[in-house]
Write a protein that binds this DNA or RNA. Sequence first.
DNA 1: TGCATGACTCGAG
DNA 2: CCTCGAGCCATGC
Length: 123
Amino acid sequence: MKRARTASRDPRGSTDARTARDELVQRILATVDSIPKGSVASYGQVAREAGLPRHARLVGRVLRELPTGSKLAWHRVVNAAGRISPRADGTPSPEQHRRLEREGVHFEPNGRIDLARFGWRPK
DNA sequence: TGCATGACTCGAG
DNA sequence: CCTCGAGCCATGC
């Protein structure tokens, strides 16, 4: 049975609350997975495509929590400025930079990617 | 319930 | 082009 939520308290421990959240995560992962090789999408764009406008930060959180060695193409997600978002240490991930260049995504001298050229445009 | 934390974004200056 | 500040919103303590 569904374990009635005591109305007041609904800690993330609530079974349906957790499943609902997991579904949002799945949608985000699926969207990221659909970004074609050679192009990039911003956190906000991924959120919108996943049907979650204004949730760019959630996309970032999800990617941050990805297990090392994940098959997901997390490197195709950059910020709206076309840059690799700084990590906790304040510097952009060299790994992400490498992966992108390896699949043909070019970086300008200022560290930005020309979104008009490499930005993902879902059909 | 309140308050701080961000792989965010956008508009000003 | 860059730095800031404000707005945004799920999380976690």
